[in-house]
Amino acid sequence: MLSEKDLELQKHLLEAYPYVTERPGSADHASVDVPADKALEFARALRDVEGFAAIQECCGCDWGVDASPRFSAIWHLYNYDKHLYVRMNVYAPDNAKPEVPSMCPIWAGANWHEREAYDLVGVRFAGHPDLRRIMMWDAYPYHPLRKDFPLAGVEVPFPDADTVAQTGVKVMPAPQNGGPFVSGCGHTLRTSEPFGRDQEWRENNRKG
């Protein structure tokens, strides 16, 4: 539920910045959609006029293989004086080469968050001072948190040539053994414990 303060902020933002649209369904804080070409302008106003001095996080999102627009980047910003959050969502206009403006010029703290979003989801941030991978190694060819990437991974060369020369190791898809394991939200431990999606491998499941 949005509190009164949040609702008030949301209303104010929608009125003061006409290019901004409401993001329906937010369960906690004021939440807005901003077109990519206005994002920097809006962000600057958020910081300088509305007092959102702190960036809390930035994440990339893949809304599904068939969704269009497919990718967006989401920033969470905080106002120290009024104790308010706002969530800013920017859809990338191009599905094939998703790109949104970087918020590093406004909040320097966005730097590593945006690198992570770029690394794992593959949203590029235009104007980022140092857009390199941060989690996976530099030569990794995929963006593993995209919806069409398998959890187990795919076979690619191991990043270090020395290690390969000595051991012949490869980056291999991980064995799933009945996974991925998910926890249900049952009431007893028995039903909420993690269980494998695929139960075929169990001994007591005789294969036909």
């Binding site: 996976m136 995929y142 187990a152 290690t163 051991t167 053994n177 996974g179 394991f181």
Partner: peptide, 18 residues
């Protein structure tokens, strides 16, 4: 053995390299 991290980023057991 890689433990619970059966995923794209984790080496499935350090015995593959040492």
């Amino acid at each position: 053995s890689g433990g619970m991290f059966r995923s794209y980023s984790t080496l499935q057991g350090v015995d593959r390299i040492i």
